[in-house]
Computed example of a mutant assay.
Amino acid sequence: MIDENLDISKHDERDPNPWLALFLDESIPINQTTKLALMRDNASKSARYLLPIIHLWSKVTMFFIHIFKFFFPNLINSSKVLHRILAWGLKNFVSPDANLLVFRHFHIGTEILQFIAANTPEAEIVGNPLKPKDFEDVKDDLFLQHDLNLYNFVIQLNNQLKQKGTKIQPPEKINLDMITEDQFDHIEFPKKWTNFLDLRSAIELFTPYYQLFLTSNDFIRASNSLQLDETIAIYTSQIINTPGHLGLVNNKHPMVPATTYSVAYRLVLHGLAAETLHEVLVKMKLNKNRDGIVTPMA
């Protein structure tokens, strides 16, 4: 259901809604269900009024946790406790739109890695697909495993390519079997009065817990993994033989890591980059020729 703020009949030329403009705009490839959820999330009262306060609290808290971790690096380390907190918080306080964006991210991230692996026959990648169906799945170290999957994928892929003296290149026929046109209506998210937090506010609230309950290596690696957006996008462009979608990537230059204090904002950009890349692959699958053959773009 479209929010009344995104209803074109409510458009006021003297006070145009920026989220309505972006919702109607088709210049960026993105799943329509995701787009609607993201625009409603941006227009929410939580994003408008709570986010600035939560953002400030998060940065101050992270500073003191950083000092605490410097002196007591191993006193509080428990991924299991962290993910139970995350599952509880997502279920009880995060809005349905924000939860949809969070859960969907793991599904499309898994499909993108599977796409690269399937179209690089010179490498045999043993992956760990993540497609959570409910909040119980979050408790199984879901967020941490997502970061580990990215780095392990890059390491395994490039190690095997180096050993065989080859590189990623366009295959004769592109395999898109793993890419799904998923509108993500198969998970029912809670809609209680307490489920009001927007995506960015939720991330800002959860990030200090992430920093506190993970080792410094795990937290820094999670932060730096966001800049692998550029790396994954380059792999994909080498397979489909077009660099056009690279312009949609904002988390770049993984060899020059950004500060962990910007991780919440960059995490939202990471989600958007994954969504746009996945939609490029979805459109390729839908536009394949009548013989079912998809060839690399000229």
Rank of each mutant, 00 (worst) to 15 (best):
I2Y: 01
I2V: 10
L22D: 11
F23K: 14
S27T: 15
Q32G: 04
T34A: 15
A43K: 05
R48W: 01
R48N: 01
Y49N: 08
I54C: 03
W57D: 06
W57K: 08
S58I: 00
F64N: 00
H66Y: 08
I67P: 03
P73Y: 04
N74R: 15
L75T: 12
L82E: 01
L86P: 00
G89V: 11
N92C: 13
V94R: 14
S95H: 05
P96A: 14
F115M: 07
A117S: 15
P121T: 09
E124K: 15
I125P: 03
L130G: 02
D137P: 04
V138Q: 07
K139A: 08
K139F: 07
Q145M: 13
N149C: 09
Y151D: 07
N152Y: 04
F153H: 06
F153E: 03
L161R: 02
Q163G: 06
K164S: 03
K164M: 03
T166F: 03
I168L: 12
P171M: 09
D185C: 00
P190D: 05
D198G: 12
R200T: 00
R200V: 00
E204Q: 10
N217A: 11
I220C: 01
A222F: 06
N224C: 02
T231C: 02
T231H: 03
A233S: 10
Y235P: 00
I239E: 03
N250E: 12
N250G: 11
K252R: 15
T260N: 04
R266A: 08
G271Y: 10
L272M: 15
L272D: 10
M284L: 07
K285Y: 02
K288R: 11
P296W: 09
A298S: 05
